[in-house]
Design a protein around this nucleic acid. Sequence first.
DNA 1: GCCATATGGAAAG
DNA 2: TTTCCCTATGGCA
Length: 268
Amino acid sequence: MPEGNVIHNQARRLRRLFAGHVVLVDSPQGRFAADAAIVDGHAVTKIEAHGKHLFIGFDNGLWIHVHLGLFGKWRIARGEMPDPRGELRMRIWDDEGYAELRGPTRCVVIDQEAKKAAVGRIGPDPIRKADPEPAWIRVQRSSAPIGSLLMNQQVFAGVGNIYRAEVLFRHNISPFRPGNQVSRSEFDGMWEDLVLLMSAGTKRGRIDTVRPEHMPEVMGRAKREDRHGGEVYVYRRDGRECYLCGAVVEMADMQGRKLYWCPGCQPA
DNA sequence: GCCATATGGAAAG
DNA sequence: TTTCCCTATGGCA
């Protein structure tokens, strides 16, 4: 259940474990078996994360392309590989460690050209400190709500439901405001914030968005509330009071995903 | 056991 | 805009 920060974090861990190593690859579940055989026994040359996409490169010029989707999970560890358990789509391992992949939306072997095309399909990734100009152009020309544009991977690669809700809160912008009514300075502010928040999220392996000066207010209450690994202002806090203004945090469906915002801090 | 839920995205209509 | 896919887990009987 990952946003871009998690994918970049996993890429780093996989890199530390396997970069330069000859590895074995299989698919206990069977659905990746034919593809696994193509890279099995080859050396890993590089591992890249672009937005929520992960690419594992091999010395035969091919790549494993993984997208976790909503349910996908990696288990990455040093030591001896355990016996297969559950629906195990793919395993990569050597003498030093192993990685297990379950439930991905996408896991296929592709060539260099297809890899390049996949990267080209997505927008700039804040974690890669990409040039935000293409995102600004899309936002500025669109009448779609900014809450929807932030989730569009062709506009902002790697942003997911938590960062979407939180960055809008931090900049006091209503998720329903059309992209073409977002100013350049508001866009720049959100982009810079995403670079910092998502980079920090990559290092820590969790999402924290509460500013240091607000931590005292938050900590007193957060303990009794929903825990999901980080401290946030509005994500999954619907029905509870905003930490800053006291208004009740709202929730609505936006294109099939749950959207959270504070009507007090983010007026329409 | 059953049901709802989850940080996502593509295909179908 | 709706439907479908992928898997595990936690709450409830």
